[in-house]
Amino acid sequence: MNVSKLLVAGVAFSMSAGAFAAGVHGGGHGASSGEPGKASEVARTITVEMYDNYYEPEEITVKPGETVRFVVENKGNLVHEFNVGTPDMHKAHQEEMMMMVEHGVIQGGKLNQDMMNMDMGNGHSMKHDDPNSVLLEPGQSKEVVWKFSDKGNIEFACNVPGHYQSGMYGDVNFE
């Protein structure tokens, strides 16, 4: 893999990132996870702790249309993600995250910020800045404000390679 291939891969990554990003247009099978929420509409706050490699809690219950502020804390020793989406969206995102590992953006317990922000040309980068997710180093904490849409098969998940597959996801139940 030489530099030019790296660039191509990077471009491919950020382009496909757009396909799943907001989720407002729905995933591959017409499912939708909701949309970025407005801070003014936040009905309640849920704290989600991320460990190696599982969440606490492992399931949450929301109302259709509810806007939730997630306070996400990485209490593990590895990089973890909190991402709200359908299983298909997670699957698509896992390929992008694999690329981030292959390019050294995610290195065990560290995020390579320089690599993430590197300009790949045409304004593309490997930034992980979609509104339905946060990617955190150990000790970091960030918020996600999300408005859930109708009932659907929604999970919050860590798509760092292998983490979802080994069980790092939680169910979103609808009241």
Binding site: M1, N2, V3, L6, V101, E102, H103, G104, Q107
Partner: peptide
Amino acid sequence: HSDMSGMDHGSMAMG
């Protein structure tokens, strides 16, 4: 090395 510049990640670099 010529094939691997810019990469620093173990087996991943090998595809």
